[in-house]
Design a protein around this nucleic acid. Structure first.
Length: 429
RNA sequence: GUGGCCAUAGCUCAAUGGUAGAGUCCCAGAUUGUGAUUCUGGUUGUUGCGGGUUCGAGUCCCGUUGGUCACCCCA
């Protein structure tokens, strides 16, 4: 049997339902924040990704030459596509723009916990506003995305920093701005690296580890940058329980220019659940200077998030319920006597026309088996069609209550649905 | 890209180098108009794939594919 390619997944119905549950929460919250959905092509010219820093990213592309001799690649991220779209039709859109997208992305690297070769991401970008208010709006959005999946402040938290904090730190010590990227790499790795290695890397900068520790231990007011304003904003939204200001968060990439953040699970069992930050120069860079907009963007991945939702009992229960409800019929039509199959089919059609989810046995089956099937499918009701026709026995499977109703009335009964408010899914925690 | 561990029925797992098994699931019946439990019977495998050692390999060796975890990297 041919297996799936490494790092790629089959989505069986239960997996698809779980994925759709997360996507539905993402869409719902993004729209609540006034974001509009967009998308781009999955296949792009390799050139689009070479423009941006290159290096590791280009090395991990799924790339090939198409029949038109074009060098193409499956998209590893969305930002370059977004930048092109903005640059191409910039004047059409009133700023600031709030755009989001949900789609799959591809990176050819060894898979490990929380990281596959094909994965889904929600990308949210706020384009054309460089204020701390925009930073805070995006962080608040990230928090609400997590909360909508049932996660609480005991399950996750957001670590926030402003890269400018470090630029000021370096400037105050007379260190040239050109050396900032190298320095930020050291900070980025500080949690994973042995202290003596970090100390050795800091030596060329003339910075003692103790000095660094003292600096990072300062309160937000002393750290400076946009952090004070961001904190005040989040406080007004009553979100500070979710946020930790932490200078160690700088994000690996070179293009971030201001506030950055990462979302982690409290137990710290997994890699970041989401991450992003301000990149005020990138759209200009990618559009060859044609368009310049201060922008704040972040992404949430499906792999790590679903791992966490499945690992925590209270979110796993929600996910499970949503997964079951996704395909559960409102009514399972039980046919006790094949002589009434035509009537049963008529009833099935009427119920479906009324918008109900309806299933029934395609071939003759024992009644006990039909009820088992109804149960297994998670049906809310069974409608028993037999010699009481033109009446049917409507049974609520959970309570086992039965009532005799005229078949013609069945599609009109508003309560013949097991889903209730499911269409919108569970609300925020 | 580097390294560790793993791969046996649909699923979870057994099997001193010596006849491939159990539980579960599924199917049928006990029960010809009602879901649970119980009981009875039944289906299910090129032991991931390819070589090698051996009288004999699920088991030992080599390779390979996939899974998993860590490193690298993290858009």
């Amino acid at each position: 049997m041919i297996q799936t390619l490494p790092g790629f997944r089959d989505f069986y119905p239960a997996d698809c339902a779980a994925r759709n549950y997360v996507f539905a929460r993402w869409r719902e919250v993004a729209r609540r924040y006034g974001f509009a959905e967009y998308d781009g092509p999955i296949l792009e010219s390799v050139e689009l990704y070479r423009k941006k820093s290159g290096g590791e990213l280009v090395g991990q592309l799924f790339e090939f030459t198409d029949r038109g001799e074009r060098e193409v690649a499956l998209r590893p991220e969305l930002t370059p596509t977004l930048a092109r779209m903005i640059a191409a039709r910039d004047r059409e859109f009133k700023k600031p723009l709030k755009w989001f997208s949900i789609g799959s992305f591809f990176r050819q690297e060894r898979q490990q916990k929380g990281r596959l070769r094909e994965f889904y991401q929600l990308n949210c970008d706020l384009i054309g506003d460089g204020s701390p208010a925009a930073d805070a709006e995006m962080i608040a959005l990230a928090i609400d995305l997590m909360r909508a999946c049932g996660l609480t402040k005991d399950d996750f938290f957001v670590r926030v920093n402003d890269r400018n904090v470090w630029l000021q730190f370096l400037a105050a010590r007379g260190i040239a701005a050109e050396r900032a990227p190298e320095f930020l790499q050291i900070i980025d790795k500080i949690e994973r690296e042995r202290p003596e290695v970090t100390a050795a890397k800091l030596a060329p900068f003339g910075i003692e580890p103790a000095e660094l520790e003292r600096f990072m231990a300062q309160p937000v007011a002393k750290l400076g940058g946009a952090l004070v304003a961001v904190e005040a904003d989040l406080r007004a939204r009553a979100l500070t329980d979710y946020v930790t200001f932490d200078p160690r968060i700088v994000r690996g990439l070179a293009y971030y220019t201001g506030v950055v953040f990462e979302v982690f699970d409290r137990a710290r069992k997994s890699r970041a659940l989401a991450g992003g930050g301000r990149y005020d120069d990138l759209i200009g860079l990618l559009s060859d200077g044609a368009v310049k907009h201060p922008t704040f963007g972040f992404a949430v991945g499906d792999v790590t998030l679903l791992d966490l939702l499945r690992a925590l009992p209270h979110t796993a229960a929600r996910l499970d319920a949503a997964t079951k409800a996704a395909s559960a019929p409102d009514v399972y039509v039980v046919i006790t006597d094949e002589a009434f199959r035509p009537q049963a089919l008529g009833l099935v059609s009427l119920l479906r026309e009324a918008g109900r989810r309806v299933d029934f046995p395609l071939t003759a089956q024992k009644v006990s088996r039909q009820f088992q099937t109804a149960e297994a499918l998670g049906a809310a009701h069974a409608a028993v069609v037999g010699n009481e026709w033109p009446q049917v026995k409507l049974k609520t499977l959970v309570t086992r209550e039965e009532t005799l109703v005229p078949a013609a009335d069945l599609p009109l009964l508003a309560n013949v649905t097991g889903r209730g408010a499911d269409a919108a899914g569970p609300g925020p925690a």
